[in-house]
Simulated scan of single mutants.
Amino acid sequence: MLIKYSDNPFKQVLGIVFYNRKSILLFTLISILGSIQYQFADIFNINPFVLPVVPVTILGGALAIFLGFRNNSAYDRWWEARKIWGGIVNASRTFGVMICTFSSSHFSKREEKEEDIMKWRVDIINRHICWLYALIMHLRKQSHWDDLAKHIPAKEVEELKKIHNKPAQILHKQGTLLTEGYEKNIIEDFRHMELANMIKEFYSLQGMAERIKGTIFPYYYNYFTGVFLWLFVICLPFSLVPQMGWGTIPMAMAISFVFTILEKSGAITEDPFEGRAADTPITTITRNIEIDLLEMIKSKTVPAPIEPKTGKFGVQYLD
């Protein structure tokens, strides 16, 4: 998630130009071409190619409508992703509190040792942290196993590598551990049912995230938005040049840049799980949940929060 650009205005402008250099170069070339062929038409004894302003204006209006709809829809996807992970935060903390407070030797009439109950709590909490990191891997299609290996046995990690939907399998294992706790009278039936409902909630939240990841933004919106954008960019200088002369170059570049940035922002926002600077910071959120859960079980290996990263030109963001 992008926190802010550099405090230095020069770096801000430099960064924007750098990340959009190819588009800016094309705008410049098209604008120069449109201006030169009009200004030197008499010298080369040719008829200048010009376009009427009205059709190009109508095209720009249609493009603005497409961009507005697409960007609104893309932002809805980004905001839904953030709400899903906000739900994961709340549900994870609730689950951790339930695991630590619902389990007791009272239900087994003190037959279960406290150290065994604590081990049961630690196993479930650690496996839930693995579910969080496995969900990140699943959404980003990555294969980073170090975060999982910190919390579950190496044998279980190897078994997970063979499974397609790893986070779903981890939740299945969590359900098995809850049943074992119930059978050992670590938790009684009502508390077992409440914890099972939390597993159901995690499945639901995972499914929502998978829905965003798996639902491709309608292709025709992306395709025709791109077609209309470049048609507008190419036509614009040839409609402005009769009125603006050489001023067409900066004006056409500025207008084209605005429309292109709008199109680019929508394209980036529509897929919020990729780990880019503007995406939902699921790694940072997961680390914060990990810290909370490990502190609940009084772990001695609690990691530090993830600090904002600084990219090129002073951009600060959370992964």
Rank of each mutant, 00 (worst) to 15 (best):
T301F: 06
V157Y: 01
M208H: 12
I170Y: 05
P167W: 04
W145L: 14
S143M: 11
F18R: 12
L236I: 06
A277Q: 07
P218A: 13
Y75C: 03
F273Y: 15
Y317H: 13
S256W: 05
L236R: 05
H144F: 13
L231T: 14
F238S: 03
G60N: 03
Q39L: 15
N185E: 09
K200D: 00
P281W: 07
E201K: 14
P242N: 14
V302K: 04
E159M: 12
F228Y: 14
S265M: 10
F10L: 10
P48K: 08
S256Y: 04
K11N: 12
C235Y: 04
D271W: 10
E290F: 09
I129G: 03
K166Q: 14
Y19A: 10
G275V: 07
E295Q: 14
D42S: 15
F27L: 02
P9K: 08
A168T: 06
L293E: 00
A168L: 12
D147C: 06
N185I: 05
L171N: 01
S239A: 15
H192R: 11
R276T: 10
G247I: 09
E114R: 10
A304S: 14
S104T: 15
K109M: 04
D319R: 12
C100Y: 03
F202D: 00
H128V: 08
I125V: 15
V97D: 07
S143D: 15
A62N: 11
K22C: 04
W85L: 04
D146F: 12
P167F: 09
R21T: 05
E112R: 10
K109N: 06
L132R: 02
Y203E: 09
E201M: 13
Y219P: 01
V53L: 15
G245H: 13
H164C: 02
L177R: 10
I297W: 01
I129H: 05
